[in-house]
Design a protein around this nucleic acid. Sequence first.
DNA 1: CTATTTTTTTAGTTTTGTCTAAAATTATTT
DNA 2: AAATAATTTTAGACAAAACTAAAAAAATAG
Lengths: 220, 220
Amino acid sequence: MLNYSTSEENYIKAIFHLQRQDGTVTTNELANELKTKPASVTDMMKKLKVKKLLNYQPYQGFRLTNEGNKVALGIIRRHRLWEYFLAEKLKFSWDEVHEVAEELEHVSNKKLIDKLDEFLGFPRTDPHGDPIPDANGKIEISKKICLTAMALNTIGVVSSVSDQSSEILELLEHKKIAIGTKLEVKKKFEFDNSMEVKIGRQPAFTISNQLAENIFVLSN
Amino acid sequence: MLNYSTSEENYIKAIFHLQRQDGTVTTNELANELKTKPASVTDMMKKLKVKKLLNYQPYQGFRLTNEGNKVALGIIRRHRLWEYFLAEKLKFSWDEVHEVAEELEHVSNKKLIDKLDEFLGFPRTDPHGDPIPDANGKIEISKKICLTAMALNTIGVVSSVSDQSSEILELLEHKKIAIGTKLEVKKKFEFDNSMEVKIGRQPAFTISNQLAENIFVLSN
DNA sequence: CTATTTTTTTAGTTTTGTCTAAAATTATTT
DNA sequence: AAATAATTTTAGACAAAACTAAAAAAATAG
């Protein structure tokens, strides 16, 4: 496995995440995700194509090749292992780990990462509930779904929150919703797409559609 | 404390180490240390001068300012804490940690480093016996001296080995000398500067001058 | 104390990754 | 289907950090 620059790695990772949702990724989407300009994206796409990490024809959008996906999974492995380390060992709170892991993930020493994995006891998911690829790049398919997509009267374990603003954290804290909380959907209202949910045997309470769209759960 | 590029940090660190020995550092020394060209050094010296990290007049050599020394101690703190982590927690051998720490040291998140320090139990020295600066940049003055400088019949604890080639490691292993070994100097021979040393109550054995020059000990 | 050698600096390129402005292509309207 | 709008690419510049080759300054030798 070759070595890639921090910048290249950030592009690869962003494409990987965007293509999960979209299939194919566009220049503007990627520029927006990386807070850069479309022209810079085009430049980098040419580079990654030459390195055979990317399928790309001008104006047609792009996807990672198999090799590109492998590289992406390596970066994600590093990122999530460091997140786990930060939360579990250094006692960072789950909303602080992402930013620090963004820096640590670019240290790409294979032995370091494999020994870190072992030291942590081969964790299966990071503090947000996202699965950690193993040393071979294998990753469990996440059964993670959005709270809005849950069927009535099913229970899900909160595994991640996509927005991480202090505003959403304030609201989550008030509603006593955290990573690991078990939520049961009791009612959905078509008018505003709000829903009523319960935690354990406590009385049901209301969640707005905006909030529900940012909460993801693991369900059986 | 501002943020500096990886390249700037490598220069700052190298100057810090060289000026310990020399007082003032020259262009060629630094180019040699960093495996770069003198012209590149001059370019960077101008940059660091503008940032007030360096006292530098053309052709006169350079030293770090107080601010520059502070920055250097921050980098060294990060480097040595990661070395300790790698050796103590991830079970890297003491001769492997330096290279990996060279990469990790450039992640300059203060909270990360202070929490790492706490997690490790505020270690005082790295696996090579070099002191770790505290969160304020305070560092214990090392009483580390070269084996060649030890007085007869004094005992020193091996704390570091400057050369880290596999050839020297083979020899050290054969002579059963490792970090932490207590050595007592019994005789010195003027002819070839070789010396006889003892480990505990075992019979004395001979060490060449070349080897002794690469072994450093902490003595009282 | 000149002359030569060594060291250091300057000048001009190169590479990587970014940007702006303009041109080319594709998508959307009417 | 032609006109307009949006997206994407190209062309040209710039900053950081490196390099080579040449010039300038300092150190050393005869």
